[in-house]
Every structure is written in C-alpha cells, then in structure tokens.
Amino acid sequence: MASDDNFHFAQMGDRWWMTETAWFSFCIPERKMGGWFYNMIRPNIGTVSGGAWVWDDSATLPWEVPYSSNLTVMPLQEDADLNDITLRNGVSLKTLEPLKVYRIGYEDGDLLKADLCFEAVMPPRPLRKPGSAFGDLTHFDQFGRVTGKLHLHGEEIAVDCLAMRDRSWGPRPEHRPRKSAYVTGIASPDDCFLFVTKANELSEQLAYGFMIKDGEIGDLVEGMRRVERDPRTGFVERILIEGVDEYGRRLEAEGKKLSGITLIRHSFIDHNGLMEWSINGKTGHGEDQDMWPVHDWSRYRRETGRAG
C-alpha cells in the first residue's frame, strides 16, 4: 500500500523499542565502493539514529573508511512525514512515486554530499516466513536502480547501480540481538536474489528469501549459505549460496568480497561485505551482512584463534 511509505506510529503501542527503519544501499563496483543511508526512528521516545556510510577496499573500520556517520539520539521533529523529510541525522527522503521512486539526499559540509534516485525494478516483497533475525517486525525488501552523484571529500562520483532497499516497523529491542546473515545479489532486474539465514543458528540454513530468475519471482523454500573466512580477521571472503524456490528452480550463487565495513550496531556486530556475484552464471553485485551478537563474536574468535 502507498501508506507504507509513511510512518506507522499509530500502530506501534507504547514500548520504547518500537522502531521504524528506512535503508537504502548503493555501490560503485569498479571502485570497490559501497554505501548506505540508514535511518532508525523510535517515535515513543522521539529519537532518530543512523546516517551514512561509504567504504572501499582501503579500510574496514568505520573510523578509517572514506565516510562514516552513525548518530544515535537525534530528536525527531513534530508532524514528521517520511514521504518528504530531512531527518536530523542528515538524510533526506522524498517519495516521488509511491512504493517505486525515491530521492535520497545527504549533506555533511565538504565531507559528503549525495543526491541519488532509487527507482524500483520490482514490487516490494514482504517477509513471508518466520525464523529470521527480523522477528515480529513488519518488513519488506525491494531491488532498484540507484542513480545520481556523490561529492566525497571534494570529488564528484557518479552512481549508477542496482541495489537493495528495505523498510521495517515494529519491535526492535537493542538488548536482544540475533545472529543472522542478510545476503543480496542482483545481476539484472530479471536475475537476483535475497537470502536470509535462520536466526541464532550456526547452520547457515535459509530462513526466508526470494529469487527472480528469467524475470519470474519465487520464494526460496530451502537453501544453505557456505562461507570462507579470513583466518586473520574472521570476516567472510567468499560465499556459496545454494537454494531451491517454490517452482523447483535452483539458485546457485558464488560471491567474492570486494570490500567491507565493520559496524557496531548497539549490541551486535555487522560486517557488511560488498560482493561480486555469479548468480546462476550471470555476473552481478550485492552485499553480505554477517551479523553477530558482540559476545558471540568474541567467543567465536577466542575459540577459533586469531592468525597473524
């Protein structure tokens, strides 16, 4: 519904952790550069967090990448309308065509300016199965084409890519993190996938996802994510995704990481890799969000050892 572009505050009850999010990603593969604009709003306590990140293969720590701004407790303005808003984390959003076309802006002096347009290449796809890290959230995902310009440290950079956005609203408590992986890949509007692993499991089995193959979309009904990690850091370097959709069609995707950024998002770590994919034999790009509760990550690294 077109109303899903706006806030859902009236549906949220009075718990402090009721949350609304709006996330847009983009990439410039030839520069091994990825980026996010992420917004997390908690209406019951009146706060806005998030901001913008731009990274490449020069660094993975957020204080070393080309740009990182993750604000935590900015005030939410009164009568906020997500269809046309400049949030106090610096991100501006404007709906140009409901559920299809959006303008994304950002400005932080001479460090980063952005003027991008997201144009959907598929309808929003709602979360259809339980068991993911999104829990009881209402959530949908949508691939689109992102075009426009960045000004990064004075350099103008053109953006023209295929990438994912998502939206969610509902309970998102900070003190209950879940391990999961959120994996996207798109070679064309007719050949792409989303694969989300089961929450709090090491099995890497599918919780939910979808595949568009030869232009036809189908829910993934089974699948596995297998990863190869750098022994020095523990971070994912290569991925094999295998799955089957509701029509019996196979998904085979092999990915290698081009670059990545490590984010601490309250009580979990998210190492987000910009991936180059072979998706059923077709070349594309996307992301692998490898998410761990911080104490689980610490224990995993202690148990597996740290090389180098």
Rank of each mutant, 00 (worst) to 15 (best):
S203T: 12
R306I: 14
K149A: 08
R165I: 09
A181F: 02
D110S: 07
T86H: 07
S69M: 10
L93K: 05
R125E: 15
G234S: 06
A10F: 15
G35M: 12
E303T: 09
T283V: 14
S267A: 13
R167H: 06
D191Q: 15
L112D: 04
D108H: 15
R88V: 07
L274T: 09
D270T: 12
W292D: 02
L82E: 03
P123Y: 08
M12G: 12
L162S: 05
R225C: 00
H153I: 08
L274G: 03
Y102V: 10
C192V: 04
Q289Y: 13
S278G: 07
V236G: 00
D56N: 03
H151N: 10
I45V: 11
M211L: 15
T95W: 04
D270C: 09
P177K: 11
S58I: 11
S267C: 09
E119I: 10
D5R: 14
H285R: 06
W292E: 02
R88G: 00
G218A: 10
L127W: 11
S259C: 05
G223Q: 02
R31P: 01
G215M: 10
V54D: 00
E222H: 09
A253C: 05
G148M: 06
L206W: 00
I28Q: 06
I261Y: 02
L162N: 03
D270W: 06
M122Q: 13
S188R: 15
A163C: 11
A181V: 09
L202H: 11
N39C: 07
V221R: 00
R250T: 01
Y247E: 04
D245T: 04
V236W: 01
L240D: 06
D190L: 09
A2W: 14
K213M: 11
L93Q: 04
R103S: 10
I269R: 14
G284N: 04
V101F: 09
G286P: 01
A114I: 11
H8R: 13
R31F: 01
R232I: 07
A187L: 03
I28F: 07
V196Y: 00
P43A: 14
W292Q: 03
T147Y: 14
R165V: 08
N89G: 01
P177T: 14
P43V: 15
T304Y: 09
N83M: 03
R306D: 03
M211V: 06
V159M: 03
S25M: 14
I264W: 11
R103P: 02
T86Y: 09
M18E: 12
R250Y: 01
R42Q: 13
P62S: 10
E222C: 02
C192E: 07
C192R: 11
T197C: 02
S3N: 15
R128T: 14
T60D: 08
W297H: 06
M40P: 02
R42D: 08
Y106E: 02
T283W: 08
V101W: 07
P123N: 15
N272A: 13
R226N: 07
G51D: 04
D5I: 09
T72Q: 02
M291L: 10
Y67S: 00
P293L: 12
L76W: 08
K179L: 12
E237V: 10
L240R: 13
S168R: 11
G284A: 04
G243Y: 04
E276P: 01
G170I: 05
M1T: 10
S68P: 00
D160F: 11
A307S: 14
L162A: 03
R302P: 01
N70A: 07
R229K: 13
R145F: 07
N6G: 14
G209D: 00
C192L: 09
L112F: 12
S267P: 03
D141K: 12
